[in-house]
Nucleic acid binder design. Structure first.
Lengths: 237, 237
DNA sequence: CCAATGATTCGGTCTGGGTCGAAGTGCCTG
DNA sequence: CAGGCACTTCGACCCAGACCGAATCATTGG
């Protein structure tokens, strides 16, 4: 009769603290951050941050890479990012319409990094376009795999021949591509290894650039053109 | 520079408390529960439960239906269920393999209700089978819609003619069917309005029955036969 | 080998929030 | 109308855990 305490309560408790939540929100940007950097960003002393990070590490929400006397933290994996986005999607619900339309949040709504893939309206467009153009198709199990139009599209997106091969190789792995609920658009954007590769590519080609402080990503003039060409099929909406 | 406190921290705080988490876990079963019932289930006094439920209600995690002097609570919507499952999927990670194989948890892993659809191994089989048989197919935007084999399958599943029509009508709505990460199987099971209809149908036909205390669902002898027939395509693995 | 810097550990303080007893409100039944 | 039941509100208590000061460890550079 007596329900046992669910394990998710413990994870929720880790996210519940304002300082830890702000650290996690920063890490959602995808980049590794040192302990001190995180402490300063959320205005707490290094020793407090240290205890917080130890807890996040212990629970497996973040991973650690020590480099000299710095310790760099990143989100553990895409599952953690998905969980945070799911929380945000419930937390933001009704606020979305009003808040997102302010000038301050518009860039964030248009495009941002989520862990290490593209989110926001542009991420949703990417998701819809790649499926509509059959670059990605559902296999028998409902997972997304490369479709018949994949090679053409990758070529059009200026992937090199060897890069295409490496994508094709990665496509065999689990978690290659899947939908992830976008909390501002409230529709799926594209997540997974393929989505990471694409975002890296966009940044490398200079179609997107990171903005100073936030997770927001701004398209460059050349990027605007490329995206409207590559995602043309999704622009019908 | 100073990162604002993310709104999801507030939601996480609501789930972080052991008593509230246990209530939410109970409500994940999909059935409405009265305040007193929830209080007894988690071993707290009615007045404590009342403050908890008021908070959950205020945050929109649960909804309320007052009936006489009883107040019945249910999970607010499928987004909340998805969020809880995402949390659980991170929280359970490594435990899954060991814990689920104990006799105590096996029924839960095999089939359980998630909000108001079918989860667990059977839920994953359903998801995979309906897609493999093209009862459900992805549309241009990646959402699942009824496919060319839908009518035949519904007929085979003993849906009446008018029930088939009502399903076809419901198929136009948003959130008709979509994948939802299953935290025990770690693959997608089927969620959405269609999934709810199917679970209700299985219960009505006596193919599944609710077990006493948990969210676990047990297949009846006739259910075993029906499921192996209806989900045949997924039994390859 | 000695600062200087990044990070952790320890000990003590303090507050937010969960808890229950007691009392109050509303609804249903006899 | 009276009594009972489901639930809520109020007040007081108490404790887990966030926080910081001080000290310690580790790495780098001079």
């Amino acid at each position: 009769m007596n329900a046992p305490e669910p394990r998710f309560a413990r994870v929720a408790a880790l996210i519940a603290d304002a300082s830890r939540a702000r650290m996690l929100a920063l890490l959602l940007g995808g980049e590794a951050r040192s302990a001190g950097e995180l402490a300063r960003a959320v205005s707490i002393t290094p020793q407090t941050a240290s205890t917080h990070l130890a807890q996040l590490l212990d629970a497996g929400l973040v991973t650690l890479r020590a480099q000299g006397r710095h310790r760099y933290f990143t989100l553990a994996d895409a599952d953690v990012a998905r969980m945070l986005e799911a929380l945000a999607s419930v937390a933001e619900r009704d606020e979305v319409q009003t808040r997102w339309d302010t000038a301050r949040f518009k860039p964030l709504k248009y495009a941002r990094s989520c862990y290490c893939h593209l989110a926001g309206d542009l991420g949703v467009q990417q998701h819809d376009a790649l499926i509509a153009q059959r670059v990605l198709v559902s296999d028998d199990a409902g997972a997304l795999v490369l479709g018949e139009a994949a090679s053409d599209w990758l070529h059009a997106a200026r992937f090199s021949g060897e890069a295409v091969l490496s994508v094709r190789h990665a496509a065999k792995k689990k978690r290659f591509a899947y939908g992830c609920m976008d909390w501002s658009a409230r529709r799926d954007h594209l997540a997974g290894a393929f989505a990471s590769t694409l975002l890296t590519h966009y940044l490398d080609r200079g179609w997107l650039r990171k903005t100073s402080t936030h997770r927001a990503l701004a398209p460059t003039p050349s990027g605007v053109g490329e995206f409207s060409r590559l995602f043309a099929a999704a622009f019908r909406q």
